[in-house]
Nucleic acid binder design. Structure first.
Lengths: 229, 229
DNA sequence: TCAAAAGTGTTCGGTCTACACCCATGC
DNA sequence: GCATGGGTGTAGACCGAACACTTTTGA
């Protein structure tokens, strides 16, 4: 057996799938690379792990320095190890996904540097490296997670109406959900709390505003979908 | 930005949670370390990634060379990155779990080298490194996966009775499941095929032998548990 | 008073659960 | 024939899906 330090090590990177929700559209944040390889192509934000960092630290550093975001929801996805995934050499990438509310950081389409851009998940450009694969894993995880875990609140404002939450679910899952059954499911699960206030200034009846219940009793619910996968 | 090769890299290892099922007991394979750190303590089998290997390759190499097993079911679990998880230095470990049928490899308790041993998952010794955490993640994954994906067949012989499959489920989930409802659920899902043969030589009625249906139509089922988690 | 969205309740049908009964075998 | 486990059926509870009606608001 070799001594501990004799092993050659691949580089270790994280790649981030940053989801944002705005105007009834689920988007992903992409960077336009200014260097080879994949110069002028769109890729996921990412970076190399520093020796003293945890993987979460690395993600947080990238989110803060490259994108100006902090304290966002984040979860590890999967570790991607195709030896050919990076033409520069052997790089193992740990995929993470993050959920952010774009309005919190004042970065919406058009106002950002032209090398950082939100893309509708339904209309992604060709991505460099194996980032298409990482993106797909993230979207799949988000879609299955939202069915049994209250993950949508990370994407909305602190106060929201049930209709807004409903639209978010339909947008992420890309399917129609019965409005009334959705409402009952979410309320029964105890995930949201009525604040007693209403959203004003709308044309029609003023809907009640809810907030996320951080101290919920039950720890799971289940939104049924016609095609379980 | 630093040039590509200037980054220092942590070591990259895999750690394996190898599950085996025998005599109505779910066991994990542990190694007794002969070196520091954690000398004479039990740990999960593991090893460092070689530059030309995928993570699966590394797992397969460890399984073959250390344990004499090949062509086993394997799945990536999670990547563990606590900077203090290995006292020798910074080591990132990608956890994998494997499901094997001990009778296939002729390694059962007592016949193996005394530094390799099966332990009942209910009576594990204190583990070195962060291997307790990795083990727990693996057991949790196995328990949730078996509810909707036909993963138990990796642990059984090619031919098995429904009662044997039922006992396996009860053993892994650590709960009683109604015998008759279990039978219907499994049969309706189409996951097993009646071979027409029967297990002979038992005291009572000879049960029918089934095999796993590799070409199933539906791709999911759901075993309900009293306490959904 | 009308259109449009928000809020509430009810019916129907399938699925899961908790059972009881018969069948095959070895002793 | 009897003890033991294997195979099959069924009534009731429960839950989810589909759907209709009333309420509130701005114009």
């Amino acid at each position: 057996m070799k001594a501990f330090h004799e092993y050659k090590n691949p580089s270790l990177a994280v790649d981030l799938v940053v989801f944002g929700y705005h105007d009834n559209t689920l988007s992903v944040l992409l960077l336009n690379r200014k260097e080879e390889p994949f110069k002028d192509q769109w890729t996921l934000p990412g970076g190399f792990l520093q020796m003293e960092e945890t993987l979460r630290d690395t993600c947080a550093r990238i989110l803060l320095t490259k994108l100006g975001m902090k304290e966002v929801f984040m979860e590890q996805l999967y570790t991607f190890d195709d030896p050919a995934r990076d033409p520069r050499g052997r790089v193992i990438a740990v995929g993470y996904y993050a959920l952010i509310n774009p309005s919190k950081f004042g970065i919406v389409a058009g106002t950002m540097a032209n090398d950082v851009k939100w893309f509708d998940v339904k209309q992604l450009p060709v991505l460099g490296f194996d980032h298409q694969q990482i993106f797909e894993a993230a979207l799949q995880r988000l879609r299955s997670k939202i069915l049994y875990y209250p993950v949508g609140f990370e994407l909305l404002d602190e106060l929201f109406t049930i209709t807004e939450l409903h639209e978010l679910y339909e947008c992420i899952l890309q399917m129609k959900l019965d409005r009334r059954n959705f409402r009952r499911k979410i309320l029964d699960a105890g995930y949201i709390v009525n604040t007693g206030t209403k959203r004003e200034g709308l044309k029609n009846r003023h809907p009640e505003l809810y907030k996320f219940n951080k101290h919920l009793k039950k720890n799971s619910f289940h939104i049924s979908t016609p095609e379980q996968e």
